[in-house]
Design a protein around this nucleic acid. Sequence first.
DNA 1: CTATTAACTTAACAGTGTCAACAATTGGTC
DNA 2: GACCAATTGTTGACACTGTTAAGTTAATAG
Lengths: 205, 205
Amino acid sequence: MVRLAMTQPQVELRREEILDAALELFERDGIEAVSFRRIAARLDCSYSAPYRYFASKHELLTALRARAFRWIEQRMVDAIGVSSSPIEQLRMLARAYMDAALELPDRYALMFFDIGDDDLDPSPELVEAKRAALGVCTRVVAAAEKAGQLSLRVDPLSASHLFWCGAHGLVSLQVGSQFVMGRAYETLAPMMIDTLIAGLKAPPP
Amino acid sequence: MVRLAMTQPQVELRREEILDAALELFERDGIEAVSFRRIAARLDCSYSAPYRYFASKHELLTALRARAFRWIEQRMVDAIGVSSSPIEQLRMLARAYMDAALELPDRYALMFFDIGDDDLDPSPELVEAKRAALGVCTRVVAAAEKAGQLSLRVDPLSASHLFWCGAHGLVSLQVGSQFVMGRAYETLAPMMIDTLIAGLKAPPP
DNA sequence: CTATTAACTTAACAGTGTCAACAATTGGTC
DNA sequence: GACCAATTGTTGACACTGTTAAGTTAATAG
């Protein structure tokens, strides 16, 4: 068997370099500034070189999105560390998610908005990053349920979906001021969390 | 004063023709197929002609988005007509919104996803279309509250925001299979509606 | 009929993603 | 050390894109 010119770790390192350059461009000048030409200029290589490491721009953005999901997961993990009660952990987690999204709205938009087709060729890395992020939420919900602080109306996975959907809906409508919010985020965010918790506590009809 | 070559209604008519062509392209081949060149080809005019009616592509897409908001508003209005109880109207309205979004996911994605900057130069037409659509929801929530079917925990406008955020979050995560949904839409959708209603009915803590 | 003016066309610019052909460099084998 | 294969990087090109400027056509007002 013939050895590769670059060892596997070296390839991974170059990928990370390219992603770093792409991320810098993105954070500085937004999604429209992310182009193979500009990335190449930053890395002092030709505009076609990154194609050896990413088959398409979609693939590159997908890798960037996976990074963003790991970032927001970390934000949630950090948030739940400081509180004790599971239901309070859930509150902090949801709040941390929404705060992070509004803190770096462009990054959050990248996670969900600028998408061509995600069904075809789903990146395992991205799927795993999403799964891990949701996992944080699911575990806290399950803990709250086990502690008797949430009724058994719905299973933990479904309940965590509801929280995720509620939080995502709120911040994604807020992010680009895409909606005429008659109410401010600071009042709506705890309202959403409390309403969902109250709804999950309520006995089934 | 000098008369215009086109009367005001004629200008509006031409705008609609351009939007019709753009919409056909969009519905057939997606957002990437919407370009001034392709629109012009469909209208048998030069690729620069539409610039007389839309200052930029963003403005054209904004007009298309306003159309989409009026469309989903109509879907909600149609849905609430068939039920009587306000709380049931609310259920039907939310369900109609989500069903419409999943029925034409690309159109729904256009409404929220493909956006450059919405803050600068906010189109009055789009703002009004959004306001009108939310108004449908707000009125039904207010009616439910007045009928005593919802507690007074939060005001109707805030409550309608919660419904909108919940519904939007659910379908927008579902639309591009952007999330690893461990639970199907058919189970999550009524779950979200019921949980929010139950949460709003619950007494304040 | 003429002059004005709006509607339209053409050409061009500065970008973009993507791919094919070519050069350079590297690493293992004899 | 020399050779060879494979991989990495470069250049050029294609087919697009949004957008603007200059020039053209056509219709209308006086």
